[in-house]
């Protein structure tokens, strides 16, 4: 195929911004555009990428910096057509990562505790690295279904 010079290689981006809700749209659009331009993601998969970025950054906005204004760094890498997205903060960290990842776990009444569930459902892998006082780093990987053959819409065998 012509026109995709980075599909079979290595491309990356990093975005650092204040961890505020008004930056969510920018974070989603940036990573989605990066992923769509460099790999064979379907429209639905690009929507899923927007959701997982939104969930990761929303977690930082809501939980990482209870008292001070902090920042969030979103890194994305496309290596041989597979996307890795990392959302990192330098905030207070998560005490019990295993509990936080449970569906319906929430520390706030107006929330559903579905952030990590969506991140798990819409990616092929999710790693949460966190310790109290040492920030949190969430890493997600996603391969286009067209490349893995796992796609729901892939034509019959």
């Amino acid at each position: 195929m012509q026109g995709c010079t980075v599909c079979e290689s290595d491309n990356w981006m990093t975005l650092t911004m204040p961890a505020v809700a008004d930056n969510l749209g920018l974070a989603r659009v940036t990573v989605a555009a990066f992923a769509a331009a460099g790999a064979d993601f379907t429209l639905e998969e690009v929507e899923e990428i927007k959701v997982v970025v939104s969930e990761g950054v929303s977690n930082v906005v809501l939980h990482a910096y209870p008292e001070v204004q902090g920042q969030v760094t979103i890194s994305a890498r496309l290596l041989d057509g597979v996307l890795t997205v990392t959302v990192a903060d330098e905030g207070r960290g998560i005490e019990d990562v295993q509990s936080a990842r449970q569906a319906s776990y929430t520390t706030r009444k107006d929330r559903m505790g579905l952030g990590f569930s969506f991140m798990e459902s819409f990616t092929d892998g999710l790693v949460v690295d966190s310790a109290p006082g040492e920030g949190t780093e969430v890493t997600m990987t996603k391969a286009p279904s067209a490349a893995t053959g796992n796609g729901k819409e892939s034509p019959g065998d």
Partner: peptide, 9 residues
């Protein structure tokens, strides 16, 4: 677009 924050609201 909607995510878990929209659903929570």
């Amino acid at each position: 677009f909607i995510d878990s924050s929209g659903l929570g609201a």
